[in-house]
Design a protein around this nucleic acid. Sequence first.
DNA 1: TTGTAGGCGTTATCAG
DNA 2: CTGATAACGCCTACAA
Lengths: 342, 342
Amino acid sequence: LTRQRNITIRDVAREAGVGLGTVSRVLSESSHVRPETRQRVLEAVERLGFRPSRMAQGLARGRTQTLGVLVPFFTKHYFLEILRGVEQSAFTYDYSLIVYNVERREQALAHFDFLGKTRRVDGLIVIALSHELITEAYAEMPAFPVVGVDTRIEGAASLLPDHEKGMYLAVRHLARLGHQRIGLIDRHQDPVSEVVSQERQRGYRKACQEAGLSVPDAYQVVTEYSQKGGHSAARRLLSRRQPPSALACASDVQAIGAMRAVQERGLRVGDDVSVTGYHDVELAEYVGLTTVRVPAADMGAAAVSLLIEMFVGRPPERDMIRFSPRLVVRQSSRLAGANSSA
Amino acid sequence: LTRQRNITIRDVAREAGVGLGTVSRVLSESSHVRPETRQRVLEAVERLGFRPSRMAQGLARGRTQTLGVLVPFFTKHYFLEILRGVEQSAFTYDYSLIVYNVERREQALAHFDFLGKTRRVDGLIVIALSHELITEAYAEMPAFPVVGVDTRIEGAASLLPDHEKGMYLAVRHLARLGHQRIGLIDRHQDPVSEVVSQERQRGYRKACQEAGLSVPDAYQVVTEYSQKGGHSAARRLLSRRQPPSALACASDVQAIGAMRAVQERGLRVGDDVSVTGYHDVELAEYVGLTTVRVPAADMGAAAVSLLIEMFVGRPPERDMIRFSPRLVVRQSSRLAGANSSA
DNA sequence: TTGTAGGCGTTATCAG
DNA sequence: CTGATAACGCCTACAA
């Protein structure tokens, strides 16, 4: 099968009776062109249905008008929400997105390397991949524009949710409802990591202190990032002699596990034990879970702006920009009730 | 800021002391090269850290090694699952993905046009966009390789879930559980469309007939694709003189609305009224909803294979390939109980 | 303002 | 088997 010749800028030039430089100028709206010449070119473009080849433009201009995005676990709503923000913003800047789903460690490195070195993207957005992993990969190409969203990359700019503030908001909310004993069910960074960020714990302690509450170590537990993790942690906490009347969880899935533990104990969520989650996944609304919502799409959009600023030579002012989460109050958190089982 | 010169095939050639044609041959593994020459080239590549520019390759080869994907509503799990399949498969073929999220009608057309005409992708995968919309856009570039996933495109190949079979499985399941009166809560094609596919209704009728059940028209209702739609439809059906003892829904969200209606009526889901959904969203597992799972990732992966086959000149054998869903049984469907409220 | 000639980094063709 | 050389389609000085 013979590949049909593409319509090129040269065809347009001939059709319009001008030189091909002129066509280029009209299309890129750079230099000034006499209105009537311009008109002729535009008509020819229209008549021929011409669209410039991005490949050729990319080669000639030295930039691809494309951004690379590394997203972990396509199926997680939170990451997708970030990606959604990235997409919208990229579109308004007339940038395309090359997207890679990374579900395994080696994938991340391979994709990063590939995108960084084959010059097919002008810059790279890395969503929520572990710090060490990306920092290591990034070290090999320090000149390449990269921004991390919800992941910190040594030497590159990062956009991060302010988890200290997020947890602070949740715990302050519980304290204001009159809860005196508030447990924290924290989590590992991600399902395959042992790392625990200290931010949420700081937020928790800060809110407790402001409310004049004691924060016994035993009330702060770290579990696996899963329903099961939240479930067993809540069981343990609730079976204490002085059980907490409120549980602040580091994720919605853990919170849902915790809610189950509350119910299994014959207590009512909200009335007897308040529970808060983190992230505001779809399920959270369904089960009426009070939670903390991270401005995921905003971070994604900001990442694009930042990257594009970098292309024009402007280095970011700060290498770490924080985004404030906000509290979403639902039925799982209520005024501290009468029954404080002792 | 001065753009640093890229490492090119020419640098490698000089470093290895060969002509640049040879380097190209080594890299593309096409023609035969003497082993020792080959070795020298490879070493030079390694030393310089050279990676070929995809842009330049694209221009020269006339193909971009990139696929375009149009996916509606990033946030819907089902679409993402398809995309996930696409991504995995594309990766194994060494293809990159340019992804566009389409949330509005005009976006779809604009993106389609852009991707089809700027020669930045070798082919296009269209996920679940309305038939008329895409057919119209596709008519303008009939030569461009396109495959639709869960959407039918006139003249292009499509991969479709067999919804007739899916609904058939659900209803047969209910009939085998002993249900005599089975209601169908069908839906419009998508939230912004009035179209109703006839497939599910066919599956429903077929299963009913095989089981020797009558299928009164009043038992088949079409509602909006939402919880509310399912809820009100179930209310209506359950308040009939002869209420159905089982409800087969065309989506999980409708099913969840229906479950709510069952409970509001003081009945128990599963024990008194069985309910089935469609799609198997995350929530379905949480609420124990029996449902029909569409092989989303498989369809995505198949779309990539099909497209790549088309590149090598092989037209698809059939222009419509069906994928069989399968039943996922959970607690919301049980044996028809004693209490058939009359 | 407009046309022309190089160049962007590969691949492909064609002699040698 | 290998080395030049002409595309690929566009951009951008430079000259007119």
